[in-house]
Design a protein around this nucleic acid. Structure first.
Lengths: 185, 185
DNA sequence: ATATTTAATGAACAAGTGTACAATAAAATT
DNA sequence: AATTTTATTGTACACTTGTTCATTAAATAT
């Protein structure tokens, strides 16, 4: 069964209103009332689809995460030299991905948002690393793959956090080079 | 100037009420109203000290962070063999610290809390690592110490996140051994 | 084209939020 | 011990939240 056009319209209006509001104020300060007024959607309708503003944001989040997964499909051309260490070389496409959606990631990394967004990001990176690690590096080694991938995924995200703190002043390319250097220490 | 006894009493009552409520429900579901009713403190008084329930929690958070810093002063007896890699061996006292305050960290790592708590934890670990890294490992190497420490601090926290996900089923001692193994891969 | 299904609306509700201010009570100061 | 200072209280206000339900309107199915 296809989606009702009315549902599509309301969801679209709400998403656009949210994006508009996020350019002015932080996610947690956006009330359901003002969102619905801007989107010209009845407040009751909002509650029929989402319980809170955060749920609406998460829907957008998932489309961004899809791009992140897709970016891993890209050829590994720039990062061959990383294969020497046990981190998936494609991992570092993440910096380009973050750069591409900088506005979005300024929200995801902002203090006030719930930890759940970070976890969603963490999940994606961890899974991408998990696949690679289990295939290439841990043959015959008896160790919890979830732990190894959690370690490596979050290390990368640590750089992303610091990058955000430094107001994304470095380019994605610089961040890649930085990662290579850290891995070689 | 010393603190007014009235202020101490109200803050104490609020802190105790919060701790009591946190054993039953999640932080973000605790309303100012019910907290004040339990603490027998006027709602207006709450707002005179804290703007929201989260601010009260953060005050408690800081006392826990103090314990984390203190735990780093402990002798490095169990972790000498970690010195071979560029991670502060004292770092792994963190697992014992988390184990000690498990109830508390179940909140800090829960999805619904703001990312700011994670950042406060991250900050502490990063600073502890930063000091050590700059002193022992990066002599003459030109690299952003904040980035290196962010990478290493968050890697450790990645293990903590995964530990939380697996419901803290491992002991702190096991987590230490796991870290040693990961570093040796 | 008409009938049927279902989403959106508007109104109304109790409850929580954040703020303000005069009255009160409990500390600190003299 | 009396006075001054200041934290707490009680009350009130406009506003947001989350929910319900009958009514309206738009999309899908016949």
């Amino acid at each position: 069964m296809k989606t009702d056009m009315r549902v599509f319209k309301t969801k679209d209006a709400l998403r656009k209103a949210l994006m508009h509001l996020l350019e002015q104020k932080s996610l947690n300060s956006i009330s359901v009332t003002e969102l619905c007024q801007l989107a010209k959607v009845n407040r009751g309708t909002f509650y029929a689809h989402y319980g809170q503003v955060e749920n609406l944001f998460e829907e957008y989040f998932k489309t961004i995460m899809k791009d992140l997964a897709d970016s891993y499909q890209e050829p590994y051309k720039h990062v061959q030299h990383l294969l020497s260490r046990n981190v998936n070389p494609s991992t570092i496409r993440i910096f380009h991905h973050i750069e591409k959606y900088e506005t979005f990631y300024r929200i995801v990394f902002s203090k006030t948002v719930p930890l759940s967004y970070y976890y969603l990001l963490f999940d994606h990176v961890q899974n991408l690393i998990k696949t690679d690690v289990s295939e290439h590096y841990l043959n015959g080694i008896d160790i919890d793959i979830s732990m190894v991938s959690a370690y490596q995924a979050n290390a990368i995200l640590g750089l992303a956090i610091e990058w955000h703190r430094q107001d994304f002043k470095q380019s994605a390319e610089e961040m890649n080079r930085l990662l290579v250097r850290i891995l070689s220490i």
